[in-house]
Write a protein that binds this DNA or RNA. Sequence first.
DNA 1: TCCCAATATCTTCCACGGAAGATATATTCC
DNA 2: GGAATATATCTTCCGTGGAAGATATTGGGA
Lengths: 168, 168
Amino acid sequence: MTEDRVDHIQQQWRRERPDLDVGPQALVGRLHRLADRLGAELVTVYRRHGLNEGEFDVLATLRRAGAPYALAPGELAQHTMVTTGAMTKRLDRLEDAGLVARERSSVDGRGRVVALSEAGRRVIDAAFAEHVRNEHRLVSGLDPTEREQLVALLRRWSESLDEIPDLS
Amino acid sequence: MTEDRVDHIQQQWRRERPDLDVGPQALVGRLHRLADRLGAELVTVYRRHGLNEGEFDVLATLRRAGAPYALAPGELAQHTMVTTGAMTKRLDRLEDAGLVARERSSVDGRGRVVALSEAGRRVIDAAFAEHVRNEHRLVSGLDPTEREQLVALLRRWSESLDEIPDLS
DNA sequence: TCCCAATATCTTCCACGGAAGATATATTCC
DNA sequence: GGAATATATCTTCCGTGGAAGATATTGGGA
């Protein structure tokens, strides 16, 4: 087991603050660094298709919703976990690029319906296929058993967070 | 095993793109969502101490480097994984707040030395102690065995990424 | 029916980081 | 020693997202 950056950071803290138990950093810190690293690999594929992460996320959300590939801006904001203001701007860019179209909702004058255009559909289908290949590459260093264990542990951790009390 | 958002997304893709194996998303997607979730919890502590994530990171890096708590801007940028331009701005803010001081390097006229002020030292010591308590809280839903397994798997995954070829 | 609260979206302003270039200083090589 | 190159930091401009408020529309209750 070679020593990595997180180990080194922990050692520094143990020297400087021996009164604190920095054990959990092994998990929290490593998870964050890994997420950053993986994220950087993923965006290279988005960029090849002329998209940034947020735009890919919007197109993918519309695509996997199934025909007619249309959702409201508010739904998209919820699914992609950004504010509606941020979504407005993403949609502005995607609309300018001709990848989505905004129409008035027929049932609610306040609402809009955002739908993939034909071009949008083509772009996300190509980008997503490459994205999946990229994900396969990124997990290829783990064998099937390790992947299963890791999925189970991440799931456990996620669920446990819902039941943890706030910091006093 | 209850179904979570990542499961649902996978199901959508399997319906819409049965030609693609989206298995790896269980790992990659879940890791990202978990990192976001944890990050949101962590910043609440930084904010209590008047810091954002980047500023906390800078002060923590100086603090754990040990006395005299001083590093060059370039070193700080490397350790915290941002560009030197971003570091300049972080240091501007921290200097305005009186938490760090910039001096000319005595050995290199181009260089600067960024050092924690007394106030900076107090702030980061208090913030970091609370940060560690927060991390303990966030991992409290996992038992010691699970934590060890998870650390080992994350470490394995990280290391494996260094040996993976680029996407063709 | 009419008013008011709720809702959906968009607008404005600001915070933060990246990319590329500017500036000052140092180092290397002749 | 002097010119060319390298290096450290900072500056400028831009892209993206959040927060708060503006606008338009809906729906409910007097």
